[in-house]
Amino acid sequence: MTTITPESLPRHELLGLHARVAADTDQSRVGIAGRVVDETMQTVVLRTASGVAQVPKKGATFEFRLTDEAAAPDNGVGTAFKPAGGETRQTTGESVAYVTVDGGRLLSRPERRSENGVDSKWR
């Protein structure tokens, strides 16, 4: 039901999505990948395999992975009930899309991002 399209992504919820730093003015940050666990006005916090990394939005280019149920937790309670060898959501190839976004477009408080580019009704 919940749908994030590549067009709406900069205004949509980033928390819970999988992201990778595709390019950055600081080379040491390129390649950081993980689940977005927190967001501030100027940074995105990724939970990587080796810990938590806080990446400034400015100067970075992020590659977000969109799946049909990106909001579902990777280690949700349902995991234990999946039959052995059954399908996981990662194997359904056509439902996965990668969206590349310039970090500069995300520079906004998390709760204000949804309102960017929308004319206010109260004027």
Partner: peptide, 17 residues
């Protein structure tokens, strides 16, 4: 649903998880 409503829905799921 508006983007904000969808975001709230996702955040609710994430918060419970």
């Amino acid at each position: 649903a508006s983007i904000a409503a969808e975001r709230i829905d996702r955040l609710h799921t994430l918060a419970r998880a």
